[in-house]
Design a protein around this nucleic acid. Structure first.
Lengths: 215, 215
DNA sequence: CGTCTTATTGAGTTTAATCAAAGGGTGTGG
DNA sequence: CCACACCCTTTGATTAAACTCAATAAGACG
């Protein structure tokens, strides 16, 4: 969920908070008194199940909103994977703004629709795509978050393998093998931990099969 | 998306339309001039991809709303799998109601949040559960849509195997094998096409692993 | 420099997909 | 009413993909 800047003056008094790596923004079950715009850094939303399985629902980058679009309590946990600055927006200020400006509500509904559509695409990615297609789609998405998908430039991949695996519904071994394969195919480079380079954008797009989930 | 009855007088002038089996309610790309409440029957929402794969996004039963929560155009196709009566709600009447009653907007946002949460649960079902867990979860959901999950009563399963497969991200063969296995285990009965009977609710809940996706 | 964590690589197993064929209703026409 | 055809479903055999278990390698950090 992005681009809330049109909210304008309604959120002038928001405060910015800083989170240390791996500290929580909120927990499942906490009441939704506020939501959060990532200013700098990366957050991850996830659910942990009784059997220990973890599903990462989304990564949030600067400009993204987390915690919005829940009911009265959060439906999952959210923490940050590196030092992160977060703008805290009181729920009440949004509700106030909605009453003052009804057209805002329509916009928010559209945003919610966008979120639903995004989840649908992600579902399809999870159940219809092969491991390598998922990784390729994921890398393209990571790339488009920090610049246009550029060949040759080092792009940041701030999350560890197990996070990628838990986001894509794979194991870390499969993630690692797929990345290695793509490196062998000269589609990407892996210069260091936490970074990757696109060497052949056309092949990467082909691997991702483009139209699903690369949005 | 359910329980829109609180909309009350805003939708008094809605008309009811009847759709013959497999006729479309709307297509992807159509403009969202209206949305639809299923009065009687069953609808399915789905996307078809360039490679021919089809993903059924949701089944809609009486009381459910379809077509709500898109942007200005529908994001997928929707048709009915049996003779279905549908209440047509003009989008304009909802927007009007929102302006007149701001608290409605909050309720709609909550509904959207609900939809997002539902999609998240479905994602998890699709990428974390085995075939038999998915089928068990699906049967429980089907059961809870028509009554409390009751042992011994014939429950309707109106969609064909290929629809179940495309909803759960499986093949029809796997769906069929899983159902057969559950029948062999005396968990369910399959008295006829389009129906099933729960014989052992406890085992069925265990197979579904309950907490994920049975909501 | 050594330890600890994270990532990679390898071997074997499991699950579901694929390919292929047979069975079972339903409906139509003789 | 029966026979046939069609569609949907079930069952079987094989294959392929990803998971599991296990070991090694590479960074990060004190």
């Amino acid at each position: 969920m992005r681009q809330m800047s049109w909210m304008g003056s309604a959120i002038d008094r928001d405060s910015v908070r800083t989170f240390a790596p791996f500290s929580p923004i909120f927990h499942e079950g906490d009441s939704t008194a506020e939501f959060f715009e990532i200013v700098q850094g990366v957050a991850r939303s996830y659910k942990i199940f009784p059997d220990g399985r973890r599903q990462i629902i989304a990564f949030a980058f600067p400009g993204d909103i987390v915690g919005f679009g829940h009911g009265s309590t959060y439906r999952f946990d959210c923490d940050v994977i590196e030092k992160t600055h977060v703008k805290v927006i009181p729920r009440s200020s949004l509700l106030l703004a909605m009453r003052n400006r009804p057209e805002l509500s329509e916009k928010l509904l559209d945003m919610a629709a966008e979120a639903v559509a995004g989840m649908q695409d992600h579902s399809i990615l999870l159940c219809r795509k092969s491991a390598i297609e998922r990784i390729a789609s994921f890398l393209l998405r990571m790339a488009s978050r920090q610049s246009a998908p550029v060949v040759g430039k080092r792009l940041s991949l701030p999350m560890c393998r197990v996070d990628i695996a838990d986001f894509l519904g794979l194991t870390i071994e499969t993630v690692s093998r797929s990345l290695t394969k793509m490196r062998t195919m000269r589609v990407i480079d892996l210069p260091d931990r936490g970074g990757f380079v696109i060497r052949d954008l056309v092949k990467l797009l082909l691997l991702a099969e483009s139209e699903i989930g690369s949005a």
